[in-house]
């Protein structure tokens, strides 16, 4: 199924990616080619086949709801782009 430039714009928005106008066409071509490849899946009837989410069909292991990690705020903030007073800073959201 071919993907056009408008479709790429929509997908980029969903994926939170800023794509330059000049690059839209090459992404459209690339995505169309990948979806063409993927379309080979339709040749097989999978009615009634259980989807596989884990090789051993195990369920997600749960742990006790207890604190296991200690406070590492300083170490984590040291690698953040912008922080102040123990908080991560982003551009103003509410005027």
């Amino acid at each position: 199924m071919p993907i056009d430039v408008d479709e790429v714009r929509k997908i980029a928005k969903l994926a939170c990616l800023n794509i330059g106008e000049d690059d839209l066409q090459s992404y459209a071509t690339n995505l169309s080619n990948i979806l063409d490849l993927v379309a080979q899946m339709n040749a097989v009837d999978t009615t009634g086949v259980t989807p596989m989410s884990h090789p051993f069909d195990v369920v997600q292991r749960l742990r006790e709801d207890v604190v296991t990690d200690f406070d590492r705020r300083e170490a984590f903030h040291a690698i953040a782009p912008k922080t102040a007073d123990g908080l991560y800073l982003v551009p103003k959201v509410i005027e």
């Binding site: 993907i3 790429v8 997908i11 980029a12 969903l14 994926a15 990616l17 794509i19 690059d23 090459s26 992404y27 690339n30 995505l31 990948i34 979806l35």
Partner: peptide, 14 residues
């Protein structure tokens, strides 16, 4: 992100 990574993110998002 480089262009290959962006392509794959978009295929996945789609």
């Amino acid at each position: 992100f480089g262009s290959e990574v962006q392509s794959r993110i978009m295929v996945g998002a789609y």
